[in-house]
Amino acid sequence: MNTDCWLLVTADGWGGAFRIARALPGRLTAVVIGPRLLAEQVAAAGPDEVRWTDPGPVPAEAWGAALAGAAADAQPGVVLSTTDPAARVLLGAVAGRMHARLVPAAVALAVEDDRLLVRRAAVGGETIETLRCTGPVAVTYGGDDVAAASGAAAPVTPVELAAAPLAVIASEPLAVASGLEDADRVVSFGRGVRARDDVSLVQGLAAALGAELACSMPIADDLGWLDKSRYVGRSGNQISPALYLAVGIGGAPQHMEGVRGARVVAAVNNDPEARIFRTADYGIVGDLYDVVPELTKAVRNLPSKELEQ
């Protein structure tokens, strides 16, 4: 089994993917299409080599075909990327050219009896399936992001490749963020809150905690109870607070993807089977209309310095 691996990197967040790639016995080549600093950061993690292409203002996706050709020559047994859109496009180009399998959401790679084992997260991460693969395999990384380890720094080799004619023709800064992104604590609510007037209940808890207020997608999108800049989830805010307290939120995978970076997740839900209790660290089973006032009171009774941020 050829376990030489290409790790395709176009942006930050490659630490987890690097870790599972490094676990393979073969030679690890990091292919970086991005700024020089990114190439140097990847090199410091200790791959065997870094091939670096500076895209300048051109989208990294423009190098898909050229990279596919280079991979067809080098014939790595495994090609890996994060789920970053640009890195994924490069992965698809390489996989198509090499006629490789493409397994999404891999969390671990191993070699057993000369075959590659890919462990992949299925059904939104509720279960992990082990696949035994022959031939070249492309995978997207689907585990948690981890800080990159540091290893013996690899040399960075600049590589000139031909780019397809893609061009950024306009770029405008997005509207000012809601403050959720940098918040240390976030209290969020979902459909468990039955009426617009009851939002104040959750607002009171957020105020007591010194937390930002957020919500699930339907609250902002269907009901309009909070501004769209305040919903958390796959297509909304992706946040990393120290504490995420979810009130009356079921915990659909699309929602939980927005808080993957949270340090502690706590939930209040009246359904003991609610999906959110599978991923939360702490939970209260109970009616939020009873629990939230008690929580607010308990927080207010804390010595005030406890809540200094």
Binding site: E129, D281, A298
Partner: peptide, 27 residues
Amino acid sequence: DPESLGCAKPDSTPARVFAGEPAETAA
């Protein structure tokens, strides 16, 4: 498809869930 060797639940610590009187669970 590649050969599946089966599925297993991920190793994760289940939530510590409090149930009972609201004042008590809140505390």
